[in-house]
């Protein structure tokens, strides 16, 4: 069957495009959009996918990753859908891609100017855990009333002695909007700030698009006596590649029962291992 180029019809793309330009003009603000039906279920990356489909053109080189892996089912399915309807080239190398769609990771290799990173977002509203009503959270954003977001972190400190949010750690964008950065690990939060590339975030089920333009101030929420900290991998080494200082997965060797660590961003690991004189 013949499909539209990039699956969506032109009216849908135009609407997504207009909303995306607004999102870039208002960093961190969630622009409502008319999320379209797609051949995958809402909540499985449809927000990111709609952004990608509205952006992609024949000259693009596409990379799709799911939690650091180019080869997981979700990444492969999304990549196939995009390629079947556009015929674009794909790559696993972050620096070779013009358009990167990612679930829950910002790649280890820094973005370059004019590169676009699309993040899939399940829950775009950082105030949702403290306020169930959309109408009220919208008003709280309008009033820059973020006590709820701070109080939530404060309560974690009171209860557990430290902030327990690991992924989706809230950030303040350009001093104005508190934003959910999608469930990227805290390790990736500092990469949001002063990035060379454009970061777009899409939530298909919740019908929101938002953006972090290049060179924008992005601060993770923290207190003076409880500063923001990323996950520490200082004393662990990747078993496959010998890499250190990258985001690691903790795994268990099923034969020996031993705990070991492996680099989460697999394409970065392969690139490093293929370099001459690599650690392993």
């Amino acid at each position: 069957m013949r499909q539209n180029f990039a699956f969506l019809d032109e009216h849908s793309k135009k609407e997504i495009r207009r909303k995306t330009l607004k999102a870039i003009s208002i960093p961190g603000y969630q622009v409502p959009f008319a999320s379209r039906e797609l051949p995958i279920a809402r909540g499985w990356g449809t927000g990111g996918l709609q952004l990608t489909l509205s952006l992609i053109g024949q000259a693009d080189i596409l990379k799709v990753i799911d939690q650091g892996s180019d080869e997981s089912v979700n990444a492969v399915n999304i990549r196939r859908l995009i390629q079947d309807t556009t015929g674009v080239k794909d790559t696993i190398h972050t620096d070779a891609a013009t358009l990167i769609q990612s679930r829950h990771r910002i790649p280890e290799v820094p973005l370059k100017p004019y590169q676009i990173l699309v993040l899939q977002v399940p829950l775009p509203e950082p105030l949702r855990p403290v306020e169930p009503s959309e109408r009220i959270t919208k008003q709280l954003h309008a009033d820059k009333e973020y006590s709820g977001a701070w109080l939530r972190l404060f309560e974690q400190i009171m209860r557990y002695g430290s902030i327990t949010d690991d992924a989706d750690y809230p950030v303040l964008v350009d001093g104005r909007y508190v934003m959910a950065p999608s469930p990227i690990p805290r390790f990736d939060n500092p990469k949001l700030e002063d990035n060379d590339g454009l970061i777009l975030l899409g939530a298909g089920r919740e019908k929101k698009i938002y953006a972090v333009p290049p060179y924008t101030k992005v601060a993770s929420l923290a207190f003076e006596d409880h500063p923001f900290e990323v996950e520490s991998f200082d004393d662990v080494t990747c078993r496959e590649s010998g890499l250190t200082g990258v985001y690691m997965d903790e795994l268990i060797d099923e034969t020996t029962g031993e705990t070991y660590y492996m680099t989460n961003d697999t394409s970065y690991m392969i690139e490093e291992m293929n370099k001459e004189g690599s650690v392993k």
Binding site: R17, T20, L21, I24, L55, G57, Q58, I116, L198, P214
Partner: peptide
């Protein structure tokens, strides 16, 4: 379809820079 996509990408670059 392709021409408006290319024009949109220029707008994306210009809005973000």
């Amino acid at each position: 379809v392709h021409e408006t996509q290319q024009h949109y990408r220029k707008l994306i670059d210009l809005f973000s820079r």
